[in-house]
Design a protein around this nucleic acid. Structure first.
Ligand SMILES: [Mn+2]
Ligand SMILES: [Mn+2]
Ligand SMILES: [Zn+2]
Ligand SMILES: [Zn+2]
Lengths: 125, 125
DNA sequence: TTTTTTAATGCAATAGGGTTGCAGTTGCAA
DNA sequence: TTGCAACTGCAACCCTATTGCATTAAAAAA
């Protein structure tokens, strides 16, 4: 993958933000006019292909992206994601991996565990 | 809630289908022209309000609806949902409730556990 | 350094799921 | 039977996301 201005800027944002970001979230953080909005969609998808970011489908159907902690050869993201209804953020709860056991013959390829409610920050205010 | 033709038909479909349905899935099962597509959206939402159906956000962001087994005063749906990538269905796995424990001060209001992969039917074929 | 290759981008159009405002209709309680 | 709020149809709209194609620009090759 080529090292472009858009890629650098977007990866930097993903890596320095502690909440999952949608395309429009990323756009809001990018310098005005750095790149086209379609490019953001494409770069984010490429970062997923490169195992540098992972996708989360929020409860409202919007796709959010967050950096990968340690995915080299393949993605592994069974951790929980929390969507705060008040501040409307989605955060990776890396420490929590829900356990479950499917009946026989189900082949699991991908997991999207999303819990929504009120986050500690909003709770305290 | 009033007893309308659309409500009756849609509730019947939801209750006799063993997979979660989107608005367009419901529309495809309804007799041509029985009601407007907007009505389907509105009826489905009303069924959720009445605790007769629950919502699931699929991995692709599309909202699906399935009947409630036993929700009277409030919804309780911590069970797993499985999305088959091959036959593109979403099914309630009522028997499986993933266990997890959030750090302190998170208030959970809603849960959306979605696992995607290959279902037993598709696996066998 | 210059040339070449092709990945990456911008732009405009398009798709698809879902919502909204409002006028007209209808279930059902009185 | 009547009155009215709940429900519906329709058209317009919103939002997220994708696609086709011409152009640009990394970075490999010369
Ligand atoms: Mn995550
Ligand atoms: Mn369910
Ligand atoms: Zn919050
Ligand atoms: Zn299947």
């Amino acid at each position: 993958m080529r090292n472009t201005v858009a890629r650098d800027a977007i990866l930097e944002i993903i890596n320095t933000t502690d909440e999952a970001l949608s395309q429009s979230d990323v756009q809001a953080k990018l310098p005005e006019g750095l790149c086209n909005r379609v490019t953001i969609y494409r770069v984010l998808d490429r970062l997923v292909d490169e195992h540098l970011a992972h996708k989360i489908t929020n409860i409202d159907g919007v796709i959010k992206y967050a950096n990968c902690q340690s995915c080299t050869t393949k993605h592994k993201h069974n951790h929980l994601h929390f969507n705060c209804e008040r501040c409307n953020t989605v955060t990776c709860i890396e420490a929590v991996e829900p356990s479950f056991k499917l009946p026989a013959n189900y082949e699991v390829k991908n997991v999207n565990f999303l819990v929504s409610g009120i986050c500690p920050e909003c709770k305290g205010n």
